[in-house]
Amino acid sequence: MNIFRFLGDISHLSAIIILLLKIWKSRSCAGISGKSQLLFAIVFTTRYLDLFTNFISFYNTSMKVVYVASSYATVWMIYSKFKATYDGNHDTFRVEFLIVPTAILSFLVNHDFTPLEILWTFSIYLESVAILPQLFMVSKTGEAETITSHYLFALGIYRTLYLFNWIWRYQFEEFFDLIAIVAGLVQTVLYCDFFYLYITKVLKGKKLSLPA
């Protein structure tokens, strides 16, 4: 465990908790894309099936359980508990355009043609684009609450930190996984525009709003 990976995990965990607390405390999921959250629930479910097949560490197992459980809790709050506050009219990204191509790609480009491996690969590909409905929603409404911006920043920086982790591991452990690295790069690139707005606006105390 190197520092980049640990900070990445912490930032990922922070993002999940920020979102849960934001919705729970304000009793509202306004501005949050239910579609992105649904995709993240699918990502965690298909990736962490290895919870049933192998044990790595207490840390690994507990983080996986927390990620899966909190993603389901978030989806439940958006589509059931606080359904009335969900802004479905602005959450119009067509998720089949993400699910179908990533599913096909995971059958074509994977490390091993076995069910668990294909599901793992699918989760890596899907995660890289799962934030698009949320970013689409922000661009459509032209603004995001500051707390939502913090959530997006923590979620985006997590994969960026993982890129440094992979460079580290390649350097010192001679381990690398091209599928994870390429998907991680794609995922990070998708956040670049948002990172720029976050640094130039939100960190200076302004609300994130896009020029019309």
């Binding site: 290895d50 996986k64 793992w120 993982y162």
Partner: peptide, 10 residues
């Protein structure tokens, strides 16, 4: 190339 993820990463 050796696998790293799915084994010990999140």
């Amino acid at each position: 190339c050796k696998r790293i993820m799915g084994k010990d990463e999140l």
